[in-house]
Amino acid sequence: MTPRAFSAGLLILGGALAAWSAMRLDPGSLYLLSEVVVIMILAQMWNLLAGYAGQISLGHQLFVGLGGYALFLAANNTGVPIWIWLALAPVLAGALAIPLGMVVFHLKHAYFAVGMWVAAEIVAALVLKWSWTGGSAGLILRPGGESMTSNPERVIFFGLAFGLVALVVALRAFLASDTGLALLGMRDNPQAAEASGVNVRRMHLLVFVISAMGCAAAGAAYYVNALYISPSDAFQMNWLIAMMFVTVIGGLGTLTGPILGTVLFIAIREVMTNAGYSGGTYWIVIGALAVVVLLVAPRGLWPAIQDLTDYTKRKAFR
């Protein structure tokens, strides 16, 4: 099967599954599944920057919050339908990411990571203090100043799920292109990439902007579903921890890893919460799992599974 046919098949299958689920499942399940897809998209975006471009950001919750707030403020203060703002929120976050990236990429490694964290905290503090952003009380989604008449979860879920499939297909195509090859080369050896004529700084900025847009889109969709946004929720560190955890556990620098990690993350959380463990107890199990995985399979679970199947295949041929 050609890569193109595979991509088309994946898109059609994913689209059909997303449409079927959106129509048939109950609102509660759709809300949970939407969150699963949101984390998968966020992790995929964080992974693009960390796993492929080698830039560890500790401030990507910034873009989740920006996407959500951009949509709420724009939708509440104009009569334009929220679907249009859903499409524009990531564009706005991407536009803001360009000057931000030009500043934070002057910092290297750990300084970049902390610089992003500081940027996220500054924006969160501003949103908390300003009155036009609703302050600490947050905002309720009232498009054009009127209450929502119907719950948006079916359309939102379809958009998110189809968006995730399209994103994975697009990332596969990107990594197979010459620009993607440059990204893989930079991951191996940034100096050699520059010596081959690759503008590493520009590539970093490109990937940074893409990851900001993806996080903003996922954040905007998530908070439309929630109908309510507040600074302490939208800019919380837990967004970042979820992105990092699922990527590192699943397999940094792989497209399947973040998907696998998210399934594990949500499964542990739901099983433990249903079993009666309150609040954030599940984080203890998740933290312990992270430590075990990093000790046993430092590259993450998905590469470990691949090694294992390669090994059994080789054995079978003997």
């Binding site: 090859l181 893989l184 080369g185 191996d188 050896n189 081959s196």
Partner: peptide, 14 residues
């Protein structure tokens, strides 16, 4: 200064 995880052909394509 080679790209350790890329093939020789990919090393030259860059």
């Amino acid at each position: 200064q080679t790209f350790a995880r890329l093939t020789v052909r990919e090393n030259l394509r860059l």
